[in-house]
Design a protein around this nucleic acid. Structure first.
Lengths: 252, 252
DNA sequence: TTTATTGGTTCATTATTAACACCAATGGTG
DNA sequence: CACCATTGGTGTTAATAATGAACCAATAAA
């Protein structure tokens, strides 16, 4: 279904940074023919997934996403539960808190909460986190039993880069993952997964801190907060923490 | 772009009432070939707009909608502003409050807040409100200068059914629209539009009440609350109330 | 055991999309 | 002002992609 694929791929060019894109520009970005780009946009517009700015004629994401997001959230809530955890994490840590979800072999960013300060770690909604090189990815791997995940042919790996087994063992022992300066050279991430009904990781929540203000003490306070929120999220969505997690982190 | 059209049409079968649909069932509902239906679903799944229940193999809306809804809401907020108004309206009136938005010549329901009581007016997210036969549609028309809107060839009309001019004049004079037992024979809607920067209606907010408990007094309290919230929404999204509205409803 | 479902796949036929070349309009620039 | 570059948008035919009947395998009911 190449046609659908191409049309939907266009949507990914619309971001928080660049929410409106003109026809020619979008054609250039996507390497599609201009006529084709327009046909795609019109088709998407017919279903309210694209809107056109009447003044500038530029295109932007449409209202359709709100409607379907609401329907999904009404039937399988997730986003709303996670978002409240992120806000608490951001308040406790005064750093960027973010959450990701594994769908379609991608660990995608589904929520962020930024602190109000001059310098902070930054990422965007929808950003895909590589499994081997982010705290979230490592946390996810460490608690996954799925052999596909712990296998460098998995889509989320950047061409066979694999997390070494020592790191994964450390993560399992501590119950949180740490990654410094790999995804972004000036920040450190601390992450904990959240789980479904079979104690399988669904995604991860994380706090990202600029290295310059990271202290030893933060590892403990941040990871404690993350583990607390992971338990909240997991129980809210009807999930279960894995055994290893419960043993090393008994209910206070 | 028929292929895209067909694929996206599939999404509309997923509702709050029926959030998961099996392959054969969806093929039947859409009158598509089963093979085609599956190809569409897989293509949508590749972009996270569809997910599959691993146990039942049924399909449901995917996480992609959350991500794009978040991007849209981050850049052109609307839903979040309106939702808080709906909750206030529901609390004040103790009846169903809902909001609609005109996109692509459809007045689509983008938010609802239900009261917690035994009987209440009901509608669904995404429901399209006919312009001629709903309080929201009449409110929208009455304040629209767009000649396309006040024209029964417009998509939102059910085959040429037109609101009579007396009703529209009454609506303009009172600044709110009323519709009893047309959309649903046992309920009455009271609606007020909200406006963009050019004082053009973008959509409407409304309260729907079962006729059996509707009293004369409610018209005033409900419309007062609606007008208050419409002003809030309009100003929050950088819009402007039309002149006629300001004259008959001076700031208290 | 038989029958009727289900989800999923295959491949020759058929309909759709690609992209070039083209407008008309807008906005700098010398 | 004329000129050039760019914009959004539109027809037309060669090349490509989608269609759908027939087909599995598996499950469930009769």
């Amino acid at each position: 279904m190449k046609t659908i694929d191409k049309a939907l791929k266009l949507l990914s060019y619309f971001t928080v940074i660049q929410p409106e894109i003109g026809l020619s520009e979008l054609a250039r970005m996507s390497n599609y023919d201009k006529a084709a780009t327009r046909r795609f946009l019109v088709a998407l517009q017919n279903h309210q997934f694209i809107e056109q700015n009447e003044d500038t004629r530029a295109y932007r994401l449409g209202i359709g996403f709100l409607i379907f997001a609401k329907i999904r959230e009404a039937t399988t809530p997730l986003e709303s539960i996670i978002q409240s955890s992120l806000v608490r994490l951001m308040e406790v840590t005064n750093e960027t808190a973010h959450a990701s979800l594994m769908t379609n072999q991608n660990l995608s960013t589904i929520g962020i909460s930024f602190p109000n300060r001059g310098m902070q770690a930054h990422l965007e909604l929808g950003d895909v986190l590589p499994l081997h090189s982010t705290a979230s990815g490592i946390a996810f791997q460490a608690f996954s039993n799925n052999s596909n995940i712990n296998n460098p042919t998995h889509k989320s790996y950047i061409k066979g880069l694999k997390t070494d087994s020592t790191t994964l063992e450390d993560t399992r022992r501590r119950c949180y993952a740490v990654s410094t300066g790999i995804y972004c050279s000036e920040t450190t991430g601390i992450a904990v997964p959240y789980f479904d009904a079979t104690a399988t990781p669904m995604g991860a929540i994380a706090v990202a801190t600029p290295n310059s203000r990271l202290t030893e003490k933060m590892y403990e306070t941040f990871s404690t907060a993350l583990i607390r929120e992971s338990k909240k999220i997991t129980s809210s969505i009807g999930g279960q923490m894995p055994q290893s997690f419960i043993l090393t982190n008994p209910v206070p």
